[in-house]
Amino acid sequence: MIAIRRYAGPVLIGLAALLLAWAGWSYWQAGNSPEAESGHDRDLALSAGKQQIAALNSMDHARVDAGLRQWLNASTGPLHDQLRRDSAQSRQRILQARTSAEGSVTAAALTELDGRAGTAQVIASVEIRLTPQAGAPSVQRKRYEAGLSRTPGGWKLTSLTAIPAGAR
């Protein structure tokens, strides 16, 4: 009887501490499981893809340099290199057209995700509002497929291809 009285308390405390340890582990697991990490990575890739596809479909013809800088910021790898190579040409074309474009992604989805390699594919439906300096604005619809790559600065586009009707 004395032994029970003496040890009951410490044993209860020990059991409670074990429960606490298990709860702590469970809590840590909930936030740090590889699944949760992959899911978070996927969500980041999609939201970055949306933003960057919109950015690459936008241009304020009064602020071409800022617009071109945004294009470069949204891209990496081959797309980045290509945009950099073509920047002088793009600049001239935009200045001649005197038309501003504002792209917004109306729907987007990832079609592929390789978290280990840090690559993904995204498809997006884009509405582009074109505003010429003179004349009425118009709206264009485009479908895109884009490649994404994880960089230290977040997910960025490595390719951007329009999928016109009838394309394979």
Binding site: A8, G9, P10, L12, I13, L15, A16, A17, L19, L20, W22, A23, G24, S26, Y27
Partner: peptide, 15 residues
């Protein structure tokens, strides 16, 4: 001792 055990258990439940 009981109180301490209960408090630890409560913390575990909250977690």
């Amino acid at each position: 001792q009981l109180v301490l055990a209960a408090v630890i258990a409560l913390a575990a439940v909250v977690l």
